[in-house]
């Protein structure tokens, strides 16, 4: 049984979430290893949520926000997301967890091809890094 990475993605529903929907409408394929969740604003994500996702078995966490950063639907959400995730990456590096397992990208809604490309890239990165826990996971999820 070969190991396949399992990723979770949180997309801001006003931009990156719309891009993911457009990707579906335009039949653009991206890797099935990721589960995407639309949330109103990624700044609602606490670092606790991210670490709990890792603990639950996710090999990587993807966050999609809006671009340009000042164009956030809630005005300052992207900046708060960036600050939290930047510090979390620093912490993760100190604990011996690769900070590349957490990735942030910024989108406007027509960027569905970029979304698909970035997700595929991210899956490739995680495949190189390997599973986050040494435990075997049930295949299929």
């Amino acid at each position: 049984m070969t190991w396949e990475p399992w990723l979770i993605g949180f997309l801001e529903k006003w931009t990156a979430g719309l891009a993911a929907e457009s990707a579906g409408v335009n039949r653009v394929r991206y890797s099935p290893n990721i589960v995407l969740i639309n949330i109103p604003c990624p700044s609602r994500l606490s670092p606790v949520h991210i670490v709990k996702a890792f603990l639950a078995g996710a090999d990587g966490v993807y966050i999609g926000g809006s671009m340009p950063p000042a164009n956030c639907h809630y005005k300052v959400g992207n900046y708060k997301t960036f600050k939290r995730m930047y510090l979390l990456k620093k912490l993760m590096a100190q604990f011996g967890i690769e900070p590349e397992r957490l990735r942030m990208d910024w989108y406007v809604s027509p960027m569905y091809r970029a979304l698909a490309k970035n997700i595929d890239e991210f899956v490739e990165t995680i495949k190189k890094l390997g599973p986050i826990t040494s435990r075997e996971r049930v295949d299929g999820l």
Binding site: V48, V51, L55, L91, F95, G96, I132, T133, S134, R135
Partner: peptide
């Protein structure tokens, strides 16, 4: 810490 838990889990 949750991160310690994760780091230890990663090490097995």
């Amino acid at each position: 810490s949750l991160l310690t838990e994760l780091a230890l889990k990663k090490r097995g």
